[in-house]
Design a protein around this nucleic acid. Sequence first.
RNA 1: GGUCCCAUCGACUAAUGGUUAGGUCACAACCCUUUCAAGGUUGCAGUACGGGUUCGAAUCCCGUUGGGAUCACCA
Length: 484
Amino acid sequence: MVRVRFAPSPTGYLHVGGLRTALYNYLFAKHHGGVCILRIEDTDRTRFVEGAAEALIEILRWAGIEFDESPEKGGAYGPYVQSERFDLYRHYAAELVQRGAAYYAFDTPEELEAMRKRMQDAGIAWRYDRTSMRNQYTLGEAETHRLLESNAPRTIRMKVPLSGTIRFDDLVRGTIEVPARDVDDQILLKSDNFPTYHLANIVDDHLMRITHVIRGEEWLPSTPKHVLLYDAMGWERPAFAHLPLLLNPDKTKLSKRQGDVAVEDYRQKGYFREALINFVALLGWNPSSNREIFSMQELIEHFDLTKVNKAGAVFDIQKLEWMNSEYLRAKPLDELARELLPTLQEQGINPSLEYLARVIGLVRERIHKLCDVPSFAAYMFSAPAEYEPAYKAQYWRPDYAAPMQALTERLAELTPWSASILQETVKAFTKESGLKIGILMNLLRLTITGRSVGAGMPETMELLGKDECIRRITTALQQFSLES
RNA sequence: GGUCCCAUCGACUAAUGGUUAGGUCACAACCCUUUCAAGGUUGCAGUACGGGUUCGAAUCCCGUUGGGAUCACCA
């Protein structure tokens, strides 16, 4: 049974890189009929942000990622919040000491800082020097015992072998080897008795029966420590899969500095969850097909961890835009209308769902996001307050007033008021007015919408209705004649 | 700097020893056209470099260069 977990720390918003990690875990689990777990890693109380865990869960749900076991939902291996599992970590830290795989250290932050400076000055890569610092080996058993009894501040550190090679397999990268001498004696239990990530992580992954650890590449350098810990406890190591990073356009790790990184940002900007999911799914993985659009179900069907790429992927917002517009065109209009209506109502616009759906149908191919509708098609909800000066300058001439007046009268008599009949009528009017259809259509666009861009005029006019169109043309013609 | 990871068009990627190196986004041109889009057609553009192995290398090996990650009592 495949069991995977997404284990964010509640320190703020959910990063799109985190979303992809969560997604790959989810896809992998679902593909194999396994279980996907959410675990909150809040062992660092100094970085705790109130409400962050709830926000994380909420945005993941929005994205369509549901967990089988989580803090809310519970499960057989809970609790799923690390701050509720502290006793466990202390227990295993003590056991590690008993097994000789970890030891007590009593150095103060100042002493550690001094050590670092010494090593730096000597030009050595700094790592904890077990032989010269204040720990159970240098202090001796009696002194160590005395310090422990007197409740002196202490940490528990990993005892990393001084020589040899640490080796582990990664599903994405193959076998990785690291010289043990380059691995630091990582602190496992802090002086406040809280565990560090490394300890809590392996304890929970083991206890929660995690079979595959799928996480970002930034964890690769600390994986040797984790495998050492599994081995020391005599626990079976999970399979590891380190995902390539999501990158800024300059190829550095995707960061806030260079644009939006929070999933929330993209939701607020009006991207569909399906588009965001589809897009990030294809950043670092691809099912070897020439297709680009996949539903969550299809992603689950095709997902294969072994086909995940090794190299980082630039987060290209332009392609996201394109993908979003693909979804905008494919979704049912009534669904889109329902989704957009609340936003409109906030702006004091309250069209019927049916009308709104038709407006969306008219303009959806011209925009990228659903939320672009109100600004792009503002004229569908109220008469133009102004006429684009450059557009008017291009198409309006005083001697068009008379033919436009005649056309308006012709339009006023039309029944039924439909796009095809409007099209025919305007076309027929080219003959008697001597004006080209391009001129006439643009004059209608100018007077009715006030804007140079928009959906096709006959369709726009049909939807707006005869009375509204006649009124708008008349108003515009009056205003233009006053101006000249 | 130490350690680790990585390297196909500008971007996302396909091709797991034999292809004219394919697709998508972006970009450009043309067609369509009442505007803007969309759509259609076409184009631009890539195996970082150098050595090997092999009949044959984007693909395997080595080196170089370049990029990235990481090096806390953070996760």
